[in-house]
Simulated assay, not measured.
Amino acid sequence: MSEDRIAALEARLGLLEDERAVARAMASYGPLVDSGEADAVAALWAPDGVYDIDELYLAGRERIGEMVRSPAHRGWIQQGCAHVVGPPHITVQGDEAVAVCHSLMVVHEAGRYVVRRATANHWRLCRTPGGAGWQVVTRTNRVLDGRAESPVLLARGVRGDPAGG
């Protein structure tokens, strides 16, 4: 096999590994938040990372951890809830990635499961120093309730636009 072909294969494999690592980081959010693992949820974000949810703007790991520890969130866990992150569309460019997906918050109410929220998600991630993994720089969520900004957020993510919303 030629040196060029080996280099091309290594580049393709590296991209696949990066996409898989980003997808795994994103997929870990639901199980961690639904089990109340506040520190592990916060560690998904860069130290100064942002989680921008319709009604909440959380800047920094401390605030993200506080959200998971909050009485409101603990109540969702006790009632029964599932944060389901759909399959992502991921664009990796060097040490940065943009991903987009849908998410659902399913809650247990009166003996049945109800979708409480269907949300457009735009993620910006960066490779950690030393290549130890990927962390969220910003995650922007907007409810899919007919507002114009939600589908725009999805389209920007598919295009790999780091601007998000």
Rank of each mutant, 00 (worst) to 15 (best):
L32W: 07
V50N: 08
T140E: 09
M67W: 15
A43L: 00
A27S: 08
R124M: 13
V41H: 00
Y29T: 00
T138V: 13
G130P: 02
A72L: 12
V143R: 12
D145F: 11
V98E: 12
S35G: 13
T138F: 04
N141F: 03
E37I: 00
I64F: 14
E55Y: 15
R63V: 03
A82Q: 14
R63H: 12
E19S: 04
W134C: 05
A38S: 14
A97F: 06
L125F: 05
C126F: 03
S35D: 10
P129I: 10
R20C: 05
R139G: 04
A132Q: 04
W45Q: 06
I64W: 12
V41M: 03
H108Y: 11
A59V: 10
R116M: 08
A72W: 10
G65M: 11
G49H: 06
G75C: 09
Q79I: 01
E19D: 06
Y29I: 01
E66Q: 09
R112A: 08
G36M: 09
P31I: 13
A42S: 02
P47L: 08
H89I: 15
E37A: 14
Q79E: 11
V114L: 11
V107R: 15
L56W: 07
V33Q: 04
R116F: 10
E37Q: 11
G130F: 03
A132W: 00
R63N: 06
R24L: 01
R74T: 11
W76T: 08
A46R: 09
R24S: 04
H102E: 12
V68M: 04
T119D: 11
V22S: 13
G80E: 14
D54W: 08
G94R: 11
R74S: 14
S70T: 10
T140W: 01
I64G: 12
L44Q: 01
Y51Q: 05
W134G: 02
A42Y: 02
D54G: 13
V136S: 02
N141Q: 11
A23S: 08
L144A: 07
E19K: 12
V107L: 09
D39I: 01
E55A: 14
L58T: 06
V107F: 09
G65K: 07
E55H: 15
Q78L: 15
V143W: 04
Q78F: 08
M105E: 08
G131T: 00
Y57N: 09
N121H: 04
D48P: 03
A82V: 06
P71V: 04
G94T: 05
E19Q: 13
D52E: 13
R112F: 05
L58V: 07
R139Y: 00
L32P: 01
A46C: 03
E62M: 02
V98A: 10
V107C: 09
Q78P: 00
V85Y: 05
A43E: 07
C126K: 10
D39K: 02
P88Q: 00
M26V: 05
N141V: 05
Y51G: 03
M26N: 03
G80H: 14
T119G: 09
G36R: 13
V41E: 00
V92R: 06
G49T: 03
G130Q: 04
G65E: 13
L125W: 03
R117P: 00
V98L: 10
G146C: 08
D52F: 01
G131L: 00
V22N: 12
W123Q: 06
G130S: 07
D34G: 12
I53D: 13
G80W: 14
E96V: 05
N121L: 07
V136Q: 02
Q93V: 14
D48A: 11
R63D: 09
A120M: 04
E19Y: 02
A59N: 07
R116G: 02
